[in-house]
Amino acid sequence: MSDSFREDFIATLPAVRGFARTFERNQARADDLVQETMVKAWASRAGFRPGTNMKAWLFTILRNSYISQYRKAKREVEDADGELTAGLSERGRQEGHLAMLDLRDALATLPHDQREAVILVGAAGLSYDEAAEVIGVAAGTVKSRVSRARARLADLMGENGEGAEPDGGAGDSPRKPPRAGKGVLLRQTVS
């Protein structure tokens, strides 16, 4: 590297700073752009042909650096507190599938009348009166069955904590399946 390259390189620095200010009004960002330009130019100094215009060469590097930064900034979104990122995340699909299997198993343990009522009201979206008409009982009976079914499902699905065994722990009733984690039931054969 010749001494003339180094002298020309340093001599064009004020012009490069002025040119950077035409792209960036903020002094700090303009200085960052100048620094990036000078680092890139210094790294590729072997590609500079002596006798050509040093200022034009540096201006071209600066302009290309600015355009690259501008394009990159258009694709980036500032998310300092992580709110946007949190909204973009998705829970694993297997958790929903396992929860659905657990719900199916829990529904199977309900007495037929409670299961029928909670499915008509909860899953089919019928009103209590409509469900009562389908089942052939009073609306109050449907409300009672749905209420008991929901409470039982909450116990089975672990939504009410680690409560007692179903039906108050009576000896002949099925035991509550052990939990593998919040809302996840293991299949257990009752002897």
Rank of each mutant, 00 (worst) to 15 (best):
Gly87Asp: 12
Leu103Thr: 08
Arg6Trp: 14
Ser144Ile: 08
Arg91Met: 10
Asn160Gly: 02
Arg187Thr: 09
Ala154Gln: 07
Pro50Asn: 05
Val146Ser: 00
Phe48Ile: 03
Ala139Glu: 08
Gly181Lys: 06
Lys72Trp: 00
Asn53Cys: 06
Val184Trp: 06
Glu162Gly: 07
Leu186Arg: 14
Asn53Leu: 03
Asp32Thr: 01
His97Cys: 06
Gly171Arg: 07
Arg91Asn: 04
Val190Pro: 01
Gly18Cys: 02
Gly92Asp: 14
Ala106Met: 04
Arg104Ser: 06
Glu78Asn: 08
Asp172Ala: 14
Ala108Leu: 08
Asn64Trp: 02
Trp42Pro: 06
Gly181Ala: 07
Gly163Leu: 12
Gly92Gln: 11
Val184His: 11
Arg145Asp: 07
Ala139Gln: 13
Arg6Thr: 10
His97Val: 13
Thr37Glu: 03
Ala11Met: 04
Ile119Trp: 08
Gly51Val: 03
Gln94Asp: 14
Leu185Val: 05
Ser44Arg: 12
Glu130Phe: 01
Arg63Glu: 04
Ser147Ile: 00
Ala124Arg: 12
Ser191Arg: 15
Arg93Met: 08
Ala139Trp: 02
Asp129Leu: 09
Val134Leu: 11
Ala46His: 14
Gly47Ile: 00
Asn53Glu: 03
Phe9Val: 05
Met157Gln: 11
Arg145Tyr: 10
Asp81Met: 06
Arg75His: 11
Ser2Leu: 06
Lys143Arg: 15
Leu33Gln: 01
Arg152Cys: 12
Leu156Lys: 02
Arg6Asp: 13
Arg150Lys: 14
Arg21Cys: 02
Gly169Phe: 03
Ala149Asn: 04
Tyr66Lys: 06
Ser191Trp: 12
Arg63Thr: 15
Phe9Arg: 01
Arg187His: 08
Glu162Ala: 14
Arg115Tyr: 06
Ile10Phe: 06
Ala56Phe: 04
Glu159Ala: 15
Thr141Met: 08
Leu62Met: 10
Met38Trp: 08
Gln27Val: 11
Leu62Trp: 02
Ile135Thr: 08
Arg6Tyr: 07
Ile135Trp: 03
Glu76Tyr: 07
Ser65Trp: 01
Ser4Ile: 13
Ser89Ile: 15
Ile135Glu: 05
Pro177Leu: 08
Pro50Arg: 03
Ala124Lys: 09
Met157Asn: 05
Glu162Gln: 14
Ala117Met: 04
Gly140Ser: 13
Asp129Trp: 01
Ala131Leu: 04
Arg71Asn: 14
Tyr128Leu: 11
Val118Pro: 00
Tyr66Ile: 03
Ser144Cys: 09
Val16Lys: 01
Phe5Arg: 00
Arg71Gly: 06
Gln35Arg: 11
Arg17Ala: 05
